[in-house]
Amino acid sequence: MKKNVYVYLLLLPGLIILLLFLAAPLFSTVFRTFQGNEGLTLAKYIAFFKDSYNRGVYIRTLKLALLTTLIAVILGFPTSYYISRLSRRARGLYIIFAVFPLLTSPVVRSFSWMVILGKNGILNSILLKLNLIEEPLRLLYNEFSIVIGLVYLFLPLMIMSLVGVMENIDEDLIEAAESLGATRREVFIRVIFPLSIPGLIVGSVLVFTGSITAYTTPQLLGGSNTTVLATLIYQNAMSLFDWDTASVVATIMILTTVFVTFLINKLSSRLNA
């Protein structure tokens, strides 16, 4: 690695763009939330959390994100383990089918669930035909449809994070444990799980923070009773023109994602120690 002062010149154009168009706008948004008539104040945050509607939105966002992460782990963990033990070729095929949804427009992915869960959607017509229900169920525009949409959106991310770590688990380790008399269950709990933790951490952080900040899915699959932080920012800014509240929600969203990332990382270093 060489030392060179001119290296800063290479970085300069990018730095200027990021300072002017990322750091400055974000700072301006965060700063205005603390601005009061007489200096800095937390008044806007106190007012925000005093409102039970806002508190409800915040709690709902966290709840849905937690639920999404849990389901993604439950579905993703065994799937990823299965994929990681496959031959190179077969693994590649599974990876293609996980990456494809990942690169497909979130609008398309959310829309596909509108087609499935809608009042005249596929699920309802199947259930009606089988005479399991008499009237179409309301499956769309509620918390249920948001969670399905979010799991659908982020499951590939969880799978990719886990496969990346699990495929490096040495087959010999598993065989060694088995030949020493460990049951499959014990192998899973004492060998595979501990070695997969790094992937689990990365996947969970990505899914959880992604769910907290997702806009498209709750906008398309949620209803007026299921506002989350992201849709609350949009409503305040574009429908109510309440820029202060929108900025407060935006800041809360940033702080929450930073805090959660910090917390999960802290937890993981505890587990590893």
Partner: peptide, 19 residues
Amino acid sequence: FLSPVLVPGIVFGFSLLNF
């Protein structure tokens, strides 16, 4: 340089509109 990926898109979009 990698930080834009960490900033929630909705927050960034709103901030750009604002700023």
